[in-house]
């Protein structure tokens, strides 16, 4: 029973990583950059939802929607102001800018909302008892997994079936050729940031519903882990983000439960190193070979 409980917790935590990893992987796929400020957008999303619901008594669902809107705008603004001017710059310059943006968001949050921890009120309360009460699973856990599944299905359908989704895949493969089709590359990149950031808001709310302490650095570690999950699954791949995220969550929870709480992060990253040694493109990563 304990094993089952850990497995469910692992999948739930992994679902959060997967939702965050989607933001990393989509932005990487389209803009070919690692947006290290992505983790901090999660934190902003969580704060917005916290103030909306705990301070102003908004309905939790409206709180989530509000925080999605704010994060979407934030994501687009970050891309326009910080990354777009560097479109032609070396990758290193963009990477450093992204790290700078991450610190900027953390410090801005500290200035605005102070560094004292806020206790995040879970947006979903209660729990369900299974097997005559031997197993108690909170609704947050279940909702998290469900939300993750819904997002994945919706995103895969969007990218594969819609006209805009197809144009995103075209931009991700060849920006020049995409422009020759009449696709606006700049607005496609903006849209990618918008989607990634909206998902970050959802991830932030779910994360803080499960782990209710909210501080300006709340997004940093989950951000790094979700990035790891994206690499683990194969960066650029949407199903890869799901698999990478869930595996990472399970490994982390199992390591905590059966090996050592302190060492759990080290174990997670050790597994990543092993996977990358064996399969450098990640689990579902494609090695694109060009035909000439």
């Amino acid at each position: 029973m304990e094993f089952l409980f850990n497995l469910i917790s692992g999948i739930s935590l992994g679902s959060i990583y997967a939702i965050i990893a989607l933001g990393y992987t989509m932005v990487y796929g389209i803009a070919k950059m690692l947006n290290f400020a992505h983790g901090d957008v999660i934190m902003v999303g969580a704060y917005i939802c916290f103030f909306a619901t705990a301070r102003y008594g908004l309905n939790p669902l409206l709180g989530v929607l509000l925080s999605m809107v704010v994060c979407t705008v934030l994501g687009i603004v970050i891309e326009r102001l910080a990354y777009k001017p560097l479109r032609q710059a070396p990758a290193l310059a963009v990477l450093i800018t992204a790290i700078g943006m991450s610190y900027f968001l953390q410090n801005a949050a500290q200035l605005l909302w102070t560094s004292s921890p806020k206790v995040f009120p879970s947006v979903v309360k209660g729990s369900v008892k299974l097997f005559d009460g031997a197993l108690s699973v909170s609704f947050v856990t279940i909702v998290t997994i469900l939300v993750c599944v819904i997002i994945m299905v919706a995103l895969v359908l969007f990218v594969n079936k819609t006209r805009i989704g197809k144009s995103m895949r075209a931009v991700s493969e060849d920006k020049g050729a995409a422009q020759l089709m009449g696709i606006n590359v700049n607005s496609t990149i903006s849209l990618t940031f918008a989607i990634g950031s909206a998902l970050a808001a959802i991830a932030g709310v779910l994360l803080c519903s499960a782990y209710p302490t909210l501080v300006p650095t709340t997004g940093a570690m989950p951000g790094i882990k979700a990035f790891t999950a994206a690499v683990f699954g194969g960066i650029g791949s949407i199903p890869g983000a799901l698999i990478g995220g869930i595996l990472l969550g399970i490994i982390e929870i199992f390591a905590k439960a059966y090996i050592s709480t302190q060492l759990s992060d080290a174990i997670v990253f050790a597994v990543l190193i092993v996977v990358l040694l064996v399969k450098p493109t990640g689990l579902l990563g494609k090695k694109v070979s060009e035909k000439v």
Binding site: K166, R169, A170, E173, D174, G176, A177, L180, K286, V288, E290, K291, V292
Partner: peptide, 11 residues
């Protein structure tokens, strides 16, 4: 029609 065709190979 660009040089090297540049079709979207994953589509």
């Amino acid at each position: 029609v660009p040089e090297g065709r540049r079709v979207f190979s994953q589509m």
